[in-house]
Simulated scan of single mutants.
Amino acid sequence: MSDAAYQPVECRFYDELGLRMMRGTPCRLIVETGDECVEQAGRISDLYTEGTAEYIRLDGGTTIRLDHIVRIEQEEQKAKEEAHQPGATP
């Protein structure tokens, strides 16, 4: 998918990424990498445009094109969901 033309993301999604970067919120991203999706986790350290595409850079140096992000969640949300799974210890 990285060779495909960039598909602009919704302003609301872009704004959400910017807020997470400013707040230093740990995020869990599901990212499309061609035929599969992979999980990336970290804090957003940069949100920028290069050419006609928009990107984020995570604190570990990973760069992700915004139109490759399938879903984004807070790390705290994942912990809450896991705590509410059957068989989970409180």
Rank of each mutant, 00 (worst) to 15 (best):
C37R: 12
Y48P: 01
R23A: 10
I64S: 00
L47S: 00
L17A: 01
A88K: 04
Q7L: 05
I69M: 07
V31A: 07
R23E: 09
E36I: 12
E54H: 11
P86W: 04
E10P: 00
R57S: 14
L47R: 03
R57Q: 15
E50I: 08
H68C: 14
R20N: 11
D15V: 03
P90M: 15
D15T: 06
Q40I: 02
M22C: 00
R71C: 09
R71M: 14
T89A: 13
L29Y: 01
L17C: 06
G24K: 03
D3V: 10
G24M: 05
T49D: 13
D15Q: 14
A79Y: 08
E50C: 08
E75M: 04
I44W: 01
H84P: 00
D35C: 11
V31K: 06
D35A: 15
I30C: 10
T33C: 11
E36M: 11
E36P: 02
I69V: 10
H84S: 14
L19A: 07
T62C: 01
K80H: 13
V31G: 00
Q40E: 15
A88M: 00
I72E: 08
M21H: 02
A5E: 07
E76G: 04
R71N: 13
I64E: 03
L19F: 08
E32S: 11
T62K: 12
Y48A: 06
